[in-house]
């Protein structure tokens, strides 16, 4: 069979990224331009600033990606782009770029759901085995997905309010940790003890999650302690918080694996870089004889390689968009 080269484009939040992936598994080149230093001073991503930075970067990143691959656009078989969900202004720059390339070079255009991309980040580590369950955890998402074959998704549950990464960032803010605070909480948690009592959120029989209550509990706890003149032990609070998050995530995920009789678990999304979460899943999967994969750290956060990989399977599935493809801030994976 002829080799298929997919150009992936990702711009859903604050990373401008292009990548070329061969046959869905072999990364030829990936370039990621992160805006983290721009947004740091605002304590989070400012959508309009992100959109402005994307358009500044776009041809630089594309050029570098093609040069690294020693390829030209006409050698690409199809163009895959994140069309949603995400920040609408940011997404639009990537989508317009993809449509422009598809028009200028008469190439097929493949719309890719951002979450599908995160799941396929694992395909660049190890070919996905089905059926599988994927726990997608990031700054914008917390979802449990069931897949029985390539590019077929069934959502089992999702967060009802804040995404887990969002909750990490807000807790980090109240602890005066610099944005993005998630990795800093993970680091503090390693040396802390779970001495603070926090509620396990949405401890029910659904596959849904909830993190806004936990976030409020931490914020209230910090304010109460401050009012009493007590000093917060940041390490211990980070550990107490992270333990509750892990309990909530692992409990529902392990139950889903059992109920659906699935032997493959993959983690996906930026929060899958969290070492506490990784270690606990690794341990539980070993105990329960589950094949466990998580993306390598460079593919855990937003990147276009995962979009190109997912795009390959969407391409094989015959999915195409025409030049009226639009970006959307929220859309269904199924």
């Amino acid at each position: 069979m002829k080799d298929i080269y997919i150009l992936g484009i990702e711009s859903s939040c604050d990373e401008t990224s292009f990548s070329i992936v061969k046959n869905g598994v072999e990364e030829i080149s990936t370039v990621i331009s992160s805006q983290i230093d721009i947004h740091k001073q605002y304590g989070g991503v400012v959508p309009e600033i992100a959109s402005r930075a994307h358009i500044k970067n776009i041809t630089f990143v594309l050029e570098e990606c093609l040069e690294k691959a020693q390829m030209t656009t006409d050698m690409i078989d199809a163009i895959a782009v994140t069309y949603g969900p995400g920040l609408i202004g940011s997404l639009l720059v990537g989508v317009e770029c993809a449509k422009a390339l598809a028009f200028l070079y008469h190439k097929p255009l493949i719309p890719v759901h951002h979450i599908a991309g995160h799941i396929y980040a694992n395909n660049l580590v190890k070919r996905l085995e089905f059926p599988l369950i994927s726990l997608v955890i990031s700054g914008g998402h917390t979802e449990l997905i069931y897949m029985d074959k390539d590019y077929s998704f069934k959502k089992l549950g999702a967060t009802l309010d804040d995404a887990v990464g969002e909750c990490y960032d807000k807790v980090a803010k109240v602890l005066n940790l610099e944005y993005p605070g998630g990795p800093k909480i993970d680091k503090l948690a390693k040396v802390g003890e779970a001495t603070y009592d926090l509620p396990i959120p949405l401890n029910d029989n659904s596959y849904n999650f909830s993190f806004s209550g936990l976030k409020s509990a931490v914020i209230n706890l910090v304010h109460n302690e401050e009012q009493r003149g007590n000093i917060i032990n940041k390490e211990n609070l980070a550990r107490s918080f992270q333990d509750v998050v892990i309990k909530s995530l692992t409990k529902k995920t392990m139950r889903a694996l059992q109920e659906y009789q699935v032997k493959n678990l993959i983690l996906a999304g930026g929060v899958s870089a969290n070492s506490g979460i990784r270690e606990e899943f690794e341990k539980l999967c070993q105990e329960n004889k589950i094949n466990y994969t998580c993306p390598s750290l460079k593919y855990a956060t937003d990147n276009a390689a995962m979009i190109a990989s997912a795009g390959y399977y969407a391409y094989l599935d015959g999915r195409r968009a025409d030049l009226t493809l639009n970006a959307t801030s929220s859309c269904n994976l199924e």
């Binding site: 309009e48 959109s51 358009i55 776009i58 041809t59 594309l62 050029e63 656009t73 609408i88 202004g89 639009l92 720059v93 317009e96 770029c97 449509k99 422009a100 390339l101 200028l104 070079y105």
Partner: peptide, 19 residues
């Protein structure tokens, strides 16, 4: 329109750079 400008500009940039 901020979004509007970026639509035409993205297309024009990509067209000019790639062709």
């Amino acid at each position: 329109s901020y979004t509007g400008i970026r639509i035409g500009m993205t297309f024009a940039k990509i067209m000019a750079w790639s062709l």
